[in-house]
Design a binder for these strands. Sequence first.
DNA 1: CGAAAGCTTTGACCGAGGTCAATAACAGGC
DNA 2: GCCTGTTATTGACCTCGGTCAAAGCTTTCG
Lengths: 245, 245
Amino acid sequence: MLDEDLKSKARSDTRCATCPVRHRAVCARANADELTLLDSVKFYKTYQAGQTIALRGDPLEVLSSVVTGTATLSQSMEDGRTQIVGLLLPSDFIGRPGRDTVAHDVTAVTEVTLCCFRRKPFEDLLVNMPHVQVRLLEMTLDDLDAARDWMLLLGRKTAREKIASFILLIAHRSVANSEQLLANEVRLELPLSRETMATYLGLTIETVSRQFTALRKDGLITLDGTRSVFVPDVAALAAEVGDGE
Amino acid sequence: MLDEDLKSKARSDTRCATCPVRHRAVCARANADELTLLDSVKFYKTYQAGQTIALRGDPLEVLSSVVTGTATLSQSMEDGRTQIVGLLLPSDFIGRPGRDTVAHDVTAVTEVTLCCFRRKPFEDLLVNMPHVQVRLLEMTLDDLDAARDWMLLLGRKTAREKIASFILLIAHRSVANSEQLLANEVRLELPLSRETMATYLGLTIETVSRQFTALRKDGLITLDGTRSVFVPDVAALAAEVGDGE
DNA sequence: CGAAAGCTTTGACCGAGGTCAATAACAGGC
DNA sequence: GCCTGTTATTGACCTCGGTCAAAGCTTTCG
C-alpha cells in the first residue's frame, strides 16, 4: 500500500486552490462564487493505465476535467481499425453538456485523475456560471481547431512529417520549460507508446519506429531509452513539418 | 441581367419568415424577440463559385450562416498540399464569436448566399439571446463530432470506403427525399467536382475517378453525367463503409 | 538471478494509391 | 452547329508505407 502510494502520481489533495490545472481548465475564469459552486459538487476519480473510462454509446452521466495523466479519445471500425481522434492532457475537458450519450471511446493511457461533475447538476449550474459557459465554448472551439489541424496531418502529411509534427506538439504542450524552447532545444517525455502514437498518427507501429530511427540518424533528435527525446535544434525539426506553424 | 437572374440561385427575398434554413441554422431556436434582434442587424452577401470568402489569418469581422450553396473550409501546407477540413452546406455557421482572426480558408464551391452579422454587434447581442448561444454551442459540438468522424476516414479508410462514405454523407445531408431513403434507394447531386472531392477525402483526383468507376462496375451506383448519382441499394453501399454508422 | 511477456527495432517483400501522360467527355461562348 | 478550355477517365509505372517475420530490449515477478 505504501508502495502503491509512492508509485502513483494521483493527486490526493483535491482543493481547487492548489489544483494544477486551476487556470487552464474549464474553471479557468470562474470567479469566487462560481468556484465555490463547482467545488461543492465536484469529486475526484482515478483510473489505472489502460483502463476504459467510457465507451461510445454509453449514457453520459459524468463530465470531467483531466487533472493529471494522459487519456485518448478514439473511434473504431467494425474490423478493429482504430483512430485516435483526440489526446486528453491535463486541463482538457471530457464530455459535453447537452448530450446524453458518449460520442467516442475514452481510455486512460497513463494513470489518470479526473475532476468530475454529474452531468445534470452541472448543466443546471452552468446557467449561473457565465464565465464557465464562455470558457467551455472557447475550449470546444480550440478542440475543433486542433481536430481540423489533425485532419491536414492525417490526409496529407508523410510519415516523417507526421512524426515531426507529433514531437513538436508534445514539445509545445509540455512547456514547463519555455527557456528551453527559446534556447531552440527541448527535452521531452513521450506520453505514448509507439503503438499508441501509430493509432494517433494514422500509421503502423513499424513505420513509427522506422521514422524515429531515421530522424535520429539525421541528427534531428536524440533518444534516451524509448520515451525520452532530446531535440537539439527545434527550428530544424520544425522545418520537417511542411507547414508554417 | 435577366439571364443572370435566371441562372443565379441566390435568394433575393431576405425575410427570416421565408428563410430556407430558419429552423436549422444558428437561429433555429430563437424566440420572437431574439429573431427581431437578429433580423435588424443581418445582411445578405453573395459569392460566385470559386471565389474566396475568407483567408486564414484575416481579421474576422463577419460571422454568417450559409443560406444557399456550398462552400469549403480548408487548410494548406507551404508546398500547396491542401486538405478540406469542413464542408459548409445550407444552415452551417461560419466564424466564431470570441476569435479575432479567421482560422481556415473559406471558399465558395457553388454560388453561395450568406446571412451575415458583424462580429462585435453579434457578440454583444449574444448575451441577450440565450437560445442562440445554446444553439451555437450545440452546432460547434456537432462540427467537432463531424471533424472527428472525418479523422477516422482520413487516417484509416481505404479509397473505396472513403468514396462510399462521401456518397452516403451527401445522401444524408440532401434528404428532402426521406421516402427514397426508406425505399432504400437515393438519387443525389454531388455538390463537388472530382478534384474538390479528392481534396476533401485525402486522395488524388485520379483515385477518386477510378473508385467511382469501380463502384459503378460493381453495380453499387449509377452515374448520370458526372455529378448525378443514383444508389439503387443504400444498404449495400453502406456495407462498403466499414463502420456501423 | 532468470524466465516470460511485452515492447521496439530491423529486414524483406508487397500492394494500394500516387504520379505522369494521353485521351475522352463536357460546358460555355460565338 | 463548332471551337476552346476545363474536367473526367483511363493506362502504365513507381513509391511510400503496410504486412509478415525475426531478433533485440525492457520490465516484471517469482
